[in-house]
Design a protein around this nucleic acid. Structure first.
Length: 256
DNA sequence: TACACGTGGTG
DNA sequence: TCACCAAGTGT
């Protein structure tokens, strides 16, 4: 559950299934992953995106092996302290893996709360204090009910109360929705800033990392730098990749 | 709070 | 084509 939640961060579930299955076959327990080199995790991550998640997941396995005797902890406080585990993932593991009581706040749930409770079309770009208070107020008291609420609210947002064309006709809570009652106003929706991509450091890093990931024998530094049209930017990005620990350098050879 | 951080599907 | 975006985290 922890692995699947980390892989699902900002990533469609449909793309997670394959890598997750392979990952769990190869490393069924935290100890199995902890014994590997971090580069193996980065390689197995493939093209899931945000590859630092692979590094953090490896570090998470090491931490679980060292601090929790190889057993995934079951409380929010313990989980939130692990690498790559933030508010959402800690709550998700508590709720989905252990059936505990935690407010699982992802973008889907925040959108549902924004519409049903606040009456606006969309939630903010990040979790706010108001979101947490709303979610805390909605969370059922018992563990069982809370866990069911968590998965229900997330599915509702993912399948029915979707961002673009919500299926209000088949929504089970349509009768309670302030946004629907108000005639589904679109104003007030925050203008999302598009994610720049072409020519960015992000794209440059992706190109260089992909090159290294696909070269079994490693890649010559010069080859990597010439894989990007702007030399200066390539040097900078290779530098950050090395700093991040995503790529390692041995002489003039680059490896994961 | 704002920003950096990948990738591939979709309208 | 191309902007938009999908179950966030760390700084």
């Amino acid at each position: 559950m922890l692995v699947s939640e980390v892989m699902s961060q900002q990533t469609p579930l449909s793309r997670v299934v394959g890598p997750w299955t392979d990952w769990m076959d190869r490393w069924p327990t935290p100890d199995d992953l902890a014994e590997e080199e971090p580069g193996a995790a980065v390689a197995a991550w493939g093209r899931l995106g945000y590859p630092r998640r692979a590094l953090r997941l490896h570090a998470c396995a090491v931490a679980i092996a060292q601090d929790f005797d190889g057993v995934v902890p079951s409380t929010y406080e313990e989980l939130i302290g692990l690498p790559g585990i933030g508010d959402y993932t800690a709550a998700a593991v508590v709720s989905f893996a252990f059936g505990g009581r935690a407010a699982v706040l992802d973008t889907n749930v925040r959108r549902v709360l924004a519409r049903v409770e606040t009456g606006v079309a969309n939630c903010g770009s990040s979790t706010s204090r108001a979101d947490r208070e709303l979610a805390a107020g909605w969370l059922p008291e018992s563990e069982a009910a809370a866990a069911r609420w968590a998965v229900s609210s997330m599915e509702l947002g993912a399948l029915v109360c979707v961002a673009r064309a919500p299926l209000c006709e088949s929504c089970p809570v349509a009768g309670h929705c302030r946004w629907l009652a108000a005639g589904k106003p679109t104003d007030g929706a925050p203008v999302r800033r598009g994610q720049a991509w072409k020519g960015t450091d992000r794209q440059c890093r992706g190109v260089i990392l992909d090159l290294v990931r696909n070269a079994v024998a490693g890649v010559d530094v010069e080859v990597a730098l010439t894989s990007w049209p702007k030399r200066h930017q390539a040097e900078k990005c290779l530098g950050t990749l090395l700093d991040d620990g995503l790529i390692h350098r041995e002489g003039s050879v680059l490896r994961l």
